[in-house]
């Protein structure tokens, strides 16, 4: 067993030991009020969760996928920049140019905006270049 393999096994063992200590040593006395969902007030309402959520989260996840893929695709160029030379650089720049144009399009479409009711919002009014930070 190499050290790496042992280390990979050590972490789950540690977690299981801590969990087992808790499950064995602690008292367990459940009743209905204790085991219901947390809510300030009297009774918790089921059915308020696992319903719709804001579409912005989904859009962010989608864009994360795109951009992370983009970054990951550039990693092979970066570790072989010496071998690839100027040709590889030009290809990488073209690749990035396309994605940067797409990113600018997303910003222009306000896809990266989360609705907020606050008036002095970070990007409250429509996009007007320089007023990004100051309005």
């Amino acid at each position: 067993m190499t050290t790496t393999t042992f280390f990979l096994f050590l972490m789950p063992i540690l977690a299981i030991i801590l969990l087992a200590v808790n499950l064995i040593l602690s008292p367990h006395n459940p009743y209905q009020e204790k085991d219901s969902a947390f809510e300030c007030g009297f009774h918790s309402f089921l059915g308020q969760n696992r319903t719709q959520f804001s579409i912005s989260f989904f859009i962010f996840a989608l864009l994360f996928l795109l951009f992370d893929l983009e970054i990951v695709l550039v990693y092979p160029y970066v570790v072989s920049a010496y071998t690839n030379g100027i040709y590889g650089l030009v290809i990488m720049l073209v690749f990035f140019l396309v994605l940067t144009l797409g990113f600018a399009f997303e910003i222009g479409k306000n896809a990266l905006k989360i609705e907020s009711r606050q008036v002095y919002n970070f990007n409250y009014k429509s996009w007007s270049g320089y007023s990004l930070i100051y309005n």
């Binding site: 801590l18 808790n22 499950l23 040593l25 602690s26 008292p27 367990h28 459940p30 085991d35 219901s36």
Partner: peptide, 11 residues
Amino acid sequence: LLLKEYVAPTQ
């Protein structure tokens, strides 16, 4: 915290 009761919510 290790000696506290664990609560497993029914839902």
